[in-house]
């Protein structure tokens, strides 16, 4: 079948068959085939890159801005900015690993609104946090407070670093002890065997290397 037949499904099938069997073609056709394959590959690459850019463009607004109804935002941009900064440190109790600014859960929206109400009412940032902390405890804070109950949490990195340093020091000391001690002294029997071989009984070879 003529691979040039345009349009028909059988023609497309035939041309595909031609694509997988380039050995049957002339050198010139083969070169043309290689070039066209390169073009196809490049085109595919560009198309995929384009798709990636499109995907990133679609997803970017989701990550860059807080979700939620723009009507919930405060008209004063400075206050809204304060509310957002606070909200990023407040855990969404339902989804647990998101801040209330990142979550679309109903309770997260309620808490976003409460934060804005308290700010408009004149609360300081600390007062807003205290309001939520009184109701939801330490868990609502994405940055845990420094207290006895959280001591293990805060101490863990310090303990890990100290343990690592201790391990390094111990290993160095051991390496130094091994290097300093050298081989054990020769026994009387070994000295006699060395003497029989005509070597000095020092444990050192003639060229100064250790025996």
């Amino acid at each position: 079948m003529d691979p040039q037949t345009p349009g028909a499904a059988s023609g497309r099938l035939a041309s595909r068959n031609a694509l997988v069997r380039p050995a049957a073609l002339s050198v010139r056709a083969r070169a043309a085939f290689a070039a066209s394959a390169r073009v196809v590959r490049t085109a595919r690459l560009w198309r995929n890159a384009g798709r990636l850019v499109l995907l990133c463009g679609l997803l970017a607004p989701l990550s860059a801005h807080a979700v939620g109804n723009p009507a919930d935002m405060l008209p004063d941009p400075a206050l809204e900015e304060r509310a957002r900064n606070l909200g990023r440190d407040i855990r969404c109790m339902v989804c647990q690993n998101q801040s209330i600014e990142d979550s679309e859960v109903g309770l997260a929206r309620d808490l976003r609104l409460i934060v804005r109400e308290r700010i408009v009412a004149g609360d300081s940032d600390a007062q807003v946090m205290a309001f939520l902390h009184a109701r939801y405890g330490d868990f609502v804070l994405l940055k845990p407070p420094f207290a006895w109950s959280t001591a293990a949490l805060w101490a863990t990195p310090v303990v890990a670093v100290l343990a690592g340093l201790g391990l390094i020091v111990a290993m160095r000391r051991r390496a130094a002890a091994v290097a300093g001690s050298g081989p054990p002294p020769l026994t009387e029997e070994e000295r006699q065997r060395l003497a029989a071989l005509g070597l000095p009984p020092t444990g050192q070879g003639q060229d100064g290397t250790r025996a």
Binding site: M93, V94, L107, R135
Partner: peptide, 12 residues
């Protein structure tokens, strides 16, 4: 409105 629930610390 669910506001009293928030005062109780209800999260679900």
């Amino acid at each position: 409105p669910g506001r009293v629930a928030i005062d109780w610390g209800v999260y679900g």
